[in-house]
């Protein structure tokens, strides 16, 4: 169950091998979390993440393999996770695939990114919402990005998919009002991680540890949207209004 500080005892991570997911698991396992289900594509990576979760204090760790390009399989993957966990206090959705300029105008690549970053997560969240409504409670934490707030040329395929997921999550949170299930959207800026390895730092770059801390604090405050670092809320409040001609010329 969730305690008065919103801290979970059981956690399902969709996208369980990402650096941010690993830090979230570590942070929450050091608190109350004893049951962790890690779902992802890469079995070896999941096993490594599972070892880390146990080291942090989780007692029961289960791994589930799924393929995020198989959109039709999203509900089944979610069911597998819930069935393995028993009752699920929190789901972290951290599935996504970053695009690069070389991906532009490649139909197959675009399909893969959109599927992984938007279509599969949307299907999975729909099933998560149903399972949690049945339970009568739960927290859904969706990893979005500031890229979703204002799409940039450099990664617009990914950013547009995140924008879709972000909007979907806002709507889902509204639909779940009064159900005992709450949705929290996390919008980090540039995070130094495996996914961004080799890219130059953007201004106000952050780390997976900082994102995990912000998520844990967000569980406590119940904030519907968490920005990391927090100042990005105000930065993007301005940037989303900047004319496209200027936005195009901004660095980062």
């Amino acid at each position: 169950m969730l305690d008065a500080f919103g801290q979970p005892q059981s956690l399902v991570v969709l996208g369980g091998t990402s650096d941010i997911a690993g830090e979230v698991v570590r942070t929450l396992a050091q608190r109350r979390c004893r049951t962790v289900v890690l779902a992802g594509r890469d079995r070896d990576g999941l096993d490594r993440s599972a070892d880390a979760a146990r080291a942090a204090g989780a007692e029961r760790v289960v791994t589930v393999v799924f393929d995020a390009s198989d959109v039709g399989g999203a509900a089944r993957a979610v069911d597998d996770c819930f069935d393995a966990a028993g009752s699920v206090d929190m789901v972290l959705l951290a599935v996504g695939m970053l695009s690069h300029q070389r991906d532009e105008l490649d139909v197959e690549r675009t399909r893969e990114i959109v599927s992984t970053t938007y279509a599969w997560p949307a299907g999975a969240l729909t099933r998560v919402a149903a399972r949690m409504s049945e339970q009568g409670y739960g927290r859904i934490v969706v990893l979005s990005s500031v890229a979703a707030v204002r799409v940039r040329r450099a990664n617009f395929v990914y950013a547009s998919a995140k924008a879709g997921l972000d909007a979907f999550s806002i709507g889902l949170g509204e639909a779940l009002r009064g159900s005992g299930v709450a949705v929290q959207i996390v919008r980090p800026g540039f995070v130094r991680s495996k996914m961004t390895a080799g890219l130059p730092d953007a201004p106000l770059a952050t780390t997976p540890e900082a994102v995990a801390r912000a998520i844990a604090a967000g569980l406590e405050s119940g904030a519907p949207v968490v920005w990391v670092p927090g100042v990005l809320r105000w930065v993007f409040g301005v940037l989303r209004l900047v004319p496209q001609a200027l936005w195009r010329r901004l660095p980062g």
Binding site: M1, L2, F5, G6, S133, G136, Y137, G178, G180
Partner: peptide
Amino acid sequence: LLCGWGRTAPTRA
């Protein structure tokens, strides 16, 4: 949706 007097951690039953 029910909660205790402290109004934390509501759940539905």
